[in-house]
Each structure stands twice: as C-alpha cells, then as structure tokens.
Design a binder for these strands. Structure first.
Lengths: 245, 245
DNA sequence: TAGTGGTCTAGACCACACA
DNA sequence: GTGTGGTCTAGACCACTAC
C-alpha cells in the first residue's frame, strides 16, 4: 500500500527543501505513520505532489536510504526497512551521546600536559617530530559509575583549557575555538584491562575492554585530534549502519 | 596548488560517468599523484575540462567526500585529506576481507540445524514465533589460527547448503540464491570468553573478545540474517569512517 | 569583489523488474 | 508494455570565505 503523507514545506526557510522533506518522512517513520514494509510514493508522484523538481525529491529520499531507513530497488520501488530504527552513528562525542540519553555524564581530567610529541604521536598527528602537543587523559563517568578512560592528543595550538574539558566534550570545546570536525576514522577492538585501567574503571585486571582509536580531521582536512579510548564492556557499545550503494 | 589530472572518460560504458570520475581521482589519491593537503580543482573548472555538467561532476566529488578522502569547505574549496587512506568499511563479509588480504580463510561448520525459532530469534528476524529458521555456527580461521566464532540465524527458506557455507562466505552463498544484502546494522562490543568460546578460539577463558551482532536486510527491506560473531581481540578490529554532512 | 561550494529547476533518456 | 529508479544536461540563484 502506498501511503501519502501530508508535508508542509517552508520555502523561505534557510533549511534546504530536500532536508525538510527528508525530516518529515523520517519523523513519519519513527512515529509509526509509515510502517515497515510500506511501499513509498514514487519519486515522480512525490515531486508533483510537493511541487518540487525530481532531483530535489530524489535527494530527500536518498538521504533516508543512506540512513538505512529506506531501501530502493530499481524497477520496483522504495520501501520502509522492516525493523525498528535506531539512531545512526553520528559524528558526535560520547559526551553528546550520553547527554542525549539523559545520563548526565561527568568528566574528570586526570592528566593535562603540553610538551614535545613522541615520534608515535607526531606521526599520528602528521606533525614534525617534537612539535608541541597536548596530551590529556580523562575519566568519563555516568550515573556515578566510571564508563570510559580517554587519552587524546592535539596540536598545542588547538589545546582547550582544562576547565572546558571538564564542562563539555572535547569536540564541543574545539567547536567553540572555531575548529569544525568533519571527518573521523575509527578503529574498534578489544583488549584486557591492565592494572591501572582496571583501577580507574572499577573493573578487575584483565577484564574485557572495548577500545577505540580515532583520528579526527577538520574541514581543511588537517588532523585535529588523535585519541585512544577504553570503555567498560559492560556499559558501552558502538552501533553502525552499513549501506550498499 | 591546484593539480590537474588527466582523465579519460568512456561515455559508451555502462559505468556511470560520475563513477568513472570518482574512481580516477580515488586512484590518483591512493597512488600519491594527488597529495594530502592539495587543493582540488573547483567544480566548474572540472566540469568544463571534462565536458560534463556540473551536477555530474559534483556527484563524483561528493562520492569521495563521503568516502572520507576529500573535505570541502563552502567558499573555500576542496582539499585532499591529510592522512594515508585506508579502505572504508564496506558491506562485505569477513571472508571477503580476508581473501582480499590474502590470508586464505577457512571455515568449519560446527552446527547446522533447521527448526522452530525461539522467541528471541523470531523477534530479531521479525518472523512469527516458531517459524522455521536455520541456525548455523561456524569457526573461521586464517593462517591456521582460529579467528572468529560466528553464529547466524536465517529464515529457513533462505538457508544455504552446508557445503556452500564452508566454501564461501554467508553473503556470497546468499547472493547466489538471488538474495542481495543492501543494509546491515551492527552493534560492536566486547566480552570475556566463556569456556567453550575459549576452547574453540584457542584462547584462555575470560580472554577479551570483540563481539559484533548484526542484522542484515535485503533490497526489499526484509531481514535476511541475524548473527552474533566473536573475534579474537588479538587478531581482528573494525574500521569505520564517519563523515559530517 | 571574486571565487567557491550549496541548492534548485525542468526537463531528457536509459536500465531494470514485473505482469 | 508499464512503471520504477538511475543517470545526465544546462543552466539559475544563493551563501559563505577570503582578499
């Protein structure tokens, strides 16, 4: 069955039309007005109904396909994916994730030191050996329980204050300094906790930890941050959605 | 500096023009002909040079932005990201990953049983309780060493033969049955190995394992597979690239 | 002010799936 | 055959950045 959804467009809004359309459909899916397996209106009909050009309409639909909420099949049509949808992984910090989940994260800065980079760190940050970098180690907790141990390295020029790092996430602190993170590459693995990690995270030595190392880039393609995070396996996981295009 | 790259287009090819362009640039970046930090030709100039329309040119560039190889900044331009590029995570199986890496994976089917689904599995597969499903448990090894223990559940109608599962990956077996996986949602975490996992994976009990549970959808949005995989932490990790759009 | 990317239009033709 | 999505054109106007 093809459901038609009433959509109001605000043509004078700075929000792109394709985005308004995509959001309206996303909301309809999340609210259950469009059900899993429902056939979607075809592009031409939708474009006509909304008084939009086909490319604009198409882009709106593609947005949701990329998010893993719709699937399209050439010659057949577009359908809503058959499963309750979670939020896709976004380029936000753990701090943001938790704040959104209402878990009230707290951060304690354990180490904060600026000095010449080791060869390894300089390589990861793509800086000349010996450049000044900030190393910060933080313990993130939520609900009174330790959650993650985070070690990050940044070019000294971008170093946020220690206060900022306790009050907000690293990315938020960078944003307020005009640094916009556009890209992150992550490597996710597992390891056994060493003695210090165990102590700080309130786990036993050799307890399984979920580890993530991340390199973040700004909108000029420069490396802004390199970090190693260790999460308590009992309290954290990553979600990813992969789309074949 | 703006580098101009000679690109040959095959207009009669079934390969889309935007894809040909994207591939040419991707190759140039991977081969080092375009270096990290290099300014990219702007869209209009590139379109004119290649005798393409701007949308087509733009789509080619966007393709590489989505892959995390380029970053664009409004009013400024497009640049090559400042770091060696790995392959992005794709919708392939571990089997494919290893075969590509030349590690000669081998698979042993430990269990293969078709029967009524438990409530939990039925829910994960979005099937009526008690529907017939295949449960298959496999041990994946490479280089003579165990690597992953994989438990998968599929609707019985899609069940590949046991032979197929030993010879190829699950996804490849499904593909040869006309099932095209278009979407996968993954949850990645860590856990301690239980006694049986430890035995099969040649690890000690309580050794850290990287675990992934995955739900896969076909091009009609139906759930095709639900699986739980456990990887030896010492031998596997996941890579993800996140792009802010 | 000049140059860049971001959005949008109104069409066109093609490839594929299905009845 | 009919209907669907996939690709492509040749423009247009706007928003933002840097000088």
């Amino acid at each position: 069955m093809t459901t038609t959804l009433p959509i109001e467009l605000e043509r004078s809004s700075p929000v792109p039309l394709y985005f308004q359309v995509a959001q309206a459909f996303e909301k309809a899916i999340l609210d259950g007005h469009l059900k899993p397996g429902d056939r979607f209106e075809n592009e031409l009909a939708l474009a006509k109904r909304l008084n939009l050009s086909r490319p604009t309409t198409r882009r709106a639909i593609q947005e949701l396909v990329d998010k893993g909420m719709l699937v399209r099949k050439r010659g057949v049509g577009t359908q809503v994916v058959q499963a309750p949808v979670h939020r896709p992984v976004e380029l936000t910090s753990l701090f943001d994730d938790l704040a959104r989940a209402g878990q009230e994260p707290a951060t304690k800065v354990l180490d904060y030191a600026i000095g010449p980079a080791s060869d390894e760190i300089a390589t990861h940050l793509n800086l000349p050996a010996g450049s000044d970098v900030l190393m910060v180690r933080r313990l993130r907790s939520s609900g009174g329980q330790p959650l993650a141990l985070m070690t990050n390295h940044l070019p000294a020029a971008l170093a946020p204050d220690q206060d900022e790092l306790e009050a907000a996430g690293l990315y938020q602190a960078l944003r307020s300094r005009g640094v916009h993170i556009r890209l992150a590459r992550q490597r996710i693995g597992a390891k056994a906790a060493d003695r210090e990690e165990a102590r700080l995270l309130d786990e036993k030595p050799k307890a399984p930890l979920l580890v993530m190392s991340r390199t973040a880039f700004d909108d000029s393609g420069r490396i802004v941050e390199y970090g190693n995070h260790a999460y308590r396996a009992s309290r954290y996981f990553f979600e990813t959605t992969l789309v074949d295009r």
